[in-house]
Design a protein around this nucleic acid. Structure first.
Lengths: 375, 375
DNA sequence: TGGCGGATCGCAATCGATTGCGCATATCGT
DNA sequence: ACGATATGCGCAATCGATTGCGATCCGCCA
């Protein structure tokens, strides 16, 4: 009897890696039909089964260690308890916290997120979305939305549940979670104006993204609100949201002969590029030029100099997006809701009162040099 | 005839969102049995079907825009063309590049990666792995391996294909991709010794990870190789791999009365915590204490001061891991291969020759103060 | 000409769960 | 006590593809 050696895997919790128990096994064990077992195990159909049977099935299921096969279920139901999460590039520190926010909220209700990087390539994006739809994802969170975004609009038209994070598309009726860019800009400009800056430049991001245009518009408005001059040559739009584009934009700013004591960047990476361009010209930040970023991405407080930036609530953006998506999944066709999260300015070492003179010889000066001190 | 409006989605590429064509549709269109169509469409069984039929089926499939339903296929075949990617926390900048490396290599051959964060919680990890196995993932890449790691060992024992990145487990026969920690440490110590440091402290990481013990051991060895004294009180092991633990470890170093002019941290986050602790004590880096990190995580060259760190090839680690895993998938049971990638030291602003005196008054000094200059 | 082997292809089972339909049995009203 | 309603549960189809097995047809050799 005991002579048969039981192999190396005798200490396995339940079935020794032989075969996962199936619904039929549970049904057999409980003496019912698989259909009944299915209904008994499923909270939403449990009420169709008598109390005693439910208990019996439950008992057998737990002793057998039964777990429903999600693939089989997905084939039958065309659902999957998962959503697609489309980001441009995870190595951009802006996105991981958003991802975590999404995942945490989804995970709490048994959903999971599929992450895919698109590198902003529409073809990769379309392929990824297609692959995910084939796998029955129930909705999408897009962190890649451009203002004109055929794929997103097409999905929305087909009533695929989706939520945009951090950006929006031109069509206004798609749920999104964004930050209050306008008031963020206002805070940043107020901060600089309070330090005594009057000639403020803007490194605008690409204008095919809602954040790009929103922040640019908000910048103009904020200048106006503070009675500051809005010289057009102090605004350059960068070709991408990265460091290189920020440096290149800053160079253009200088080369065009613009005249400024502070630059307000469309995001932190652009601001970082600005650091680079300033360093190359032998200018110091903040002594010669103040720099303000946007997004307050992780670790930017450790940079040299620590960057003053407008903080967006990364994690909450993701979390709210997930909540919105779950709402859509639960009651499809409800009025699409969008959420705008507040921002806060984090003042650090990259901003200071302007030097009394010009940062370097530059034309048409209107130096007034009132200098207040920053606390 | 033309009076019927064709709705908003008339410009759809193929079927106007009516129903994805199934294998049966293709078979019907080609006048064959679904089984034949399946064989004709599948490269590995195509040879069982006559040339003419293959062409006919192919033609119908493309005009119909047929794509195999991965869920149905997965149910039948128990495969999925996807692998699980287990990371502790995506917001740790160390991991996104690794993830990208894995994804790029996998994606090139039609595989995709499922990412999950575990926060180093074994329960979450086990649940995630279980969920993935239920979904027929074909293998795993673990970036969370601890030295004693029952789950990983159990999977390996069950012949589940898996690869460890950046870390290993005590059982040596599991494929892994790691960095040559020993020579990295050697380079770091050589650098510090070259600057004139003789009393070097080590912020060791948790000793339940292979990187933690490997780097600690390598540190001791490197000191010995350079004929430097290896005072035990200059070594503290931190409780986690993060900033807070690094600061706390540094504090312990000071509080224990250790005597050092440089600290070599087990990773960059610990080094960053060291920055914090130094700053709190009014000490400056590198003037008072030199600091060296490990990993060279993104943006660390922008920190204040820019950190000298041992660079690991993040992306390549991920890419190699994916290649290893694909090998395993293609020919199971081959001899498990492991890869060790070279490291390189990136010298930046956090290291400098030691001040001639002590950083601060500290006991049993053996000051010799030979000072060489760094180039 | 009979038979044998290989090339093609169809049949039907299968993967594991869900669900519309209908048949029993229990319950209720009058 | 009898028909009407409810409740509980089983039957079988279904989701869409894969695959072992067997049938058919052909060429070819003896």
């Amino acid at each position: 009897m005991t002579s048969r050696p039981d192999g190396p895997d005798a200490a396995q919790p339940y079935n020794p890696e032989v075969r996962r128990p199936t619904l039929r096994d549970v049904a057999d064990g409980a003496g019912v039909h698989p259909a009944t077992a299915s209904r008994a195990l499923n909270p939403s159909t449990r009420h169709l089964v008598s109390r005693g049977t439910v208990e019996r099935v439950d008992r057998v299921a737990t002793t057998l260690g039964y777990r429903v096969n999600p693939v089989a279920r997905s084939l039958k139901t065309a659902r999957s308890s998962s959503v697609g999460l489309i980001v441009p590039d995870l190595t951009n520190p802006l996105f991981p916290p958003i991802v975590r926010g999404v995942e945490d909220v989804l995970g709490a209700v048994g959903y999971s997120a599929w992450i895919v990087n698109t590198d902003n390539d529409p073809a990769r994006e379309a392929a990824a979305v297609e692959a995910m739809r084939e796998r029955n994802v129930e909705g999408f969170v897009f962190a890649t939305a451009r203002l004109e975004h055929p794929l997103v609009e097409q999905l929305a038209a087909a009533d695929v549940p989706l939520v945009l994070v951090n950006r929006r598309v031109a069509r206004a009726d798609i749920p999104s979670v964004t930050s209050d860019d306008a008031s963020g800009m206002l805070m940043a400009v107020r901060h600089l104006a309070g330090l005594g800056h009057e000639r403020i430049a803007h490194l605008a991001g690409p204008q095919d993204l809602s954040t790009g245009v929103a922040r640019l518009r908000a910048f103009r408005q904020a200048l106006e609100d503070h009675g500051l001059p809005g010289a057009p040559e102090r605004i350059v739009t960068c070709t991408a949201w990265n460091q290189a584009a920020g440096a290149e934009g800053t160079d253009r700013l200088f080369d065009s002969g613009a005249d400024f004591t502070a630059v307000l960047a469309g995001n932190d990476l652009l601001a970082l590029g600005c650091y680079d361009a300033l360093a190359r010209r032998g200018l110091r930040c903040p002594e010669d030029v103040s720099v303000v970023g946007f997004n307050d991405m992780p670790f930017i407080d450790r940079f040299s100099p620590p960057m003053t930036s407008v903080r967006i609530a990364h994690y909450e953006i993701g979390a709210e997006a997930a909540r919105l998506l779950l709402e859509e999944l639960r009651e499809p066709g409800r009025h699409p809701r969008s959420i705008v999260l507040p921002l806060k300015l984090c003042v650090r070492g990259s901003t200071a009162p302007p030097a009394s003179g010009q940062p370097q010889a530059q034309s048409q000066s209107r130096a007034r040099g009132r200098s207040r001190s920053a606390s």
